[in-house]
Amino acid sequence: QELPLGEILDKYPLQNRWALWFFKNDKNRMWQANLRLVTRFSTVEDFWALYDHIKPASKLSCGCDYSLFKDGIEPMWEDTQNKRGGRWLITLAKQQRHSKLDCFWLDTLLCLIGEMFGDYSDELCGAVINIRSKGDKIAIWTREAENQEAVTHIGRVYKERLGLSQEVTIGYQAHADTATKSNSLTKTKFVV
């Protein structure tokens, strides 16, 4: 059966409009000058057009980040929608960059754009991947660290979506604790 032209051209709309950011570490410039908005998208098809066009995270240089945030939220603690929030953090061993990193990051993106946390998806602000020589990190950021029910639900679903085993635990850190930490250890607020 032939579809009308208008229907063929219709794309699948996402619940939210998302913005992809890229950070490249240049010590000669201010932190914020190194952070660039790449593009925004709001349909399934446009997400893939972007994703298939950019370098996989595992091929980025050390010190670079990708961030995917809801449009209107900047990928930094200081944003009003982030500052009371925190992040579920996945840290990867060096050797996992080639085996797991791109899969985990893609599954993270699909969780966000597909609104896979149900009603709690409204708590999501975005996700960040940090490529670092000491070990890569992936995190999903939520807007309110005190909202324990939502945060732990998101953590449990996220862990399941990544296919992490029961023995592995992931921790949630409040941005306020990360920002004020005096050493490399940030307090973990929740664990799943």
Binding site: L9, V44, G114, S121
Partner: peptide, 20 residues
């Protein structure tokens, strides 16, 4: 309702040629 898509649905669109 909320526009929710599961992983398999979203993955079906990867590498799909863009429509013009």
């Amino acid at each position: 309702g909320k526009k929710q898509y599961d992983r398999e649905f979203l993955l079906d669109f990867q590498f799909m040629p863009a429509c013009i």
